[in-house]
């Protein structure tokens, strides 16, 4: 996934300090920049890269209960570096932000956590793997079997994740270009998680099963100066194939990219312009119009589908606001997935 979220310097406690998502186009002075041809080292690269400005561990899952009702969950840990270094205690310039959400057909629950590095309140270790902020965590011996937990004041979840396929790399073997100017990030995913566990909803606990998708991405300058937001899709078709697609909206026109992932984890990167993402219908949410029904077409793979939000009001009213929620897919292919939209 891409530029997802955010960024920020964003993480900043101070809302208006970030001049919207456009702030992502800020300079990357002193930070390491992604370059093509990077050779990923695991498990080390599952851990943090403090010399890059931003980084995230981003998990979404489409789930069902015994009655077949749809649910979605999000668990995200963002890292944002104020300076390209690490230090002890409160002196650490690394800022961590956690977002968690549960979406039901009727409601959207979310929570947010903030911390700085260096004090043990939040962080990521690669081996054994653990990503945590406060009592939220995603951990396991390695990235293949994970336990996942998060809580808000009125919701929470405890889930088990088991990878049933390989890691997949986007763009040029994990080097994902974000603009015509060459802004890029390192980007890989584990889109093959089987998920089971319990959602804690305000009125009851629900046992659920489903599929999860983890994104790992880090960069130092993910957006071009003119880019103000993005629409990002992760779709799992009933055929077993998957599609990751995003559109970065800019003054100079949109930039799109996508990855076709077949059921074995074989990937095919799709360059700018291959995937067509067209809004069909908007929903008024949080005083703005957000497209919640889309037409997604990919001529190369005969994909022409309609993507609809399970819950159009899945607005993340966090310090940096965006829309993130589960979607259903119909048309040439049926399936489920997640949609993220920022900058509206």
């Amino acid at each position: 996934m891409s530029v997802r979220a955010f960024i920020i310097f964003v993480l900043l406690p101070i809302t208006s300090w970030a001049q919207g998502y456009a702030g992502l186009g800020g300079s990357a002075e002193g930070f390491t920049r992604p370059v093509p041809g990077y050779s990923f080292q695991f498990p080390m690269d599952h851990g943090p890269h403090p010399s890059y400005r931003i980084e995230w561990w981003y998990l979404t899952a489409n789930l069902k209960d015994a009655e077949g009702r749809d649910y979605g969950i999000q668990w995200t840990l963002f890292r944002s570096a104020l300076k390209p270094s690490e230090a002890e205690g409160w002196q650490s310039p690394q800022i961590w932000m956690g977002h968690a959400a549960v979406t039901t057909p009727e409601n959207h629950y979310f929570a947010e956590r903030l911390s700085r590095g260096g004090i043990g309140q939040a962080g990521v270790t690669a081996d054994p793997f653990e990503a945590w902020i406060d009592e939220w965590h995603m951990r396991g011996d390695d990235l293949n079997t994970l336990s996942l937990t998060a809580n808000g004041s009125d919701f929470g979840y405890d889930l088990k994740l088991a990878a049933q396929g390989p890691l997949v790399f986007h763009g040029d073997a994990g080097y994902s270009v974000k603009s015509a100017d060459g802004q890029a990030s390192y980007y890989y995913s584990q889109p093959f998680f089987a998920v089971e566990g319990i959602l804690h909803l305000p009125d009851q606990d629900v046992e659920v099963t489903g599929k999860g998708w983890l994104d790992r991405e880090w960069s130092s300058q993910p957006l071009a100066q003119d880019q103000s937001g993005w629409d990002w899709f992760s779709l799992s078709f009933d055929s077993g194939d998957k599609l990751m697609a995003f559109r970065l909206r800019g003054d100079r026109g949109d930039f799109t990219a996508a990855t076709w992932i077949d059921s074995n984890g074989q990937t095919m990167p799709l360059p700018d312009g291959s995937v067509m993402l067209d809004p069909l219908e908007s929903t008024r949410v949080a005083q703005r119009d957000v497209p919640t029904r889309w037409r997604v077409s990919l001529l190369d793979h005969n994909v022409d589908v309609e993507v609809s939000a399970l819950t159009p009001k899945a607005w993340m009213g966090t310090r940096f606001e965006y829309w993130e929620g589960p979607v259903t897919v119909s048309g040439s292919h049926a399936g489920r997935g997640y949609l993220e939209m920022t900058g509206y």
Binding site: F9, L12, P13, I14, W17, L82, Q91, P93, R116
Partner: peptide, 19 residues
């Protein structure tokens, strides 16, 4: 903090939080 961040010359968070 809210007041300062809303002012015209809002400081860079990095300046606030790092030495």
């Amino acid at each position: 903090i809210s007041q300062i961040e809303q002012s015209a010359d809002a400081p860079n968070p990095a300046d606030m939080l790092t030495a």
